[in-house]
Amino acid sequence: MTDDLIIRQILKGDYTVLDAIYKEYREEFCTWICKKYGGSQEMALDVYQDAIIVLFQNIKEEKLSELTSSIKTYLFSIGRFKFISELRKKKTVLTKDGELEIAGPGLDMEDDRILKEERLTQIENALEQLGEHCRELLKLYYYKQLSMTDIMIQMDYKNTSTAKNQKYKCMQKLRKLMHLK
């Protein structure tokens, strides 16, 4: 499969092409990264999975319009940066005494981050209660960023108005679960 075709399929929100990329380069990536930086295989696989997700997002957000290297090279470079970043985190989170080191942003920013994470966790819990149909529809719209026409086709709705109406109802349900207006 050519890189152009891969990008086109990902723009359509096709996860199966990600599955294929994942299998294609997984062994090569893990062997390369472990040899180069000496981390564990589990960590390499974890980072590789995250790199695949970033690849998907960057293509959806059209950050790859000027890709001058191959998808494989790009994927490996994302993975490399993530791997190095993970290695650094492991080294810096614990001090020599084994205590947590408070570094980086100030406490106010840290509070904001914690509040935001809590809020996102609440939304995720609400999504779990929402029902599969609504979850899928909202994922297609907000994460895969598909048009209403594509959503209509994928979800087998009668027309785009039905798809849009259904999305609105799902958001209403989600708001209700979150006790929002």
Binding site: Y22, K23, C34, Q49, I53, Q57, L120, K144, R175
Partner: peptide, 29 residues
């Protein structure tokens, strides 16, 4: 809510990749 949906979708994609990993042969370094 939009950000939460994206976050949830990301986790779902990660789980999908993890389940693929579970079906593959271990890597022999």
């Amino acid at each position: 809510l939009a950000e939460g949906i994206k976050q949830w979708s990301k986790k779902e994609l990660k789980e999908r990749l993890q389940s693929i990993e579970a079906t593959l042969n271990p890597i022999q370094l």
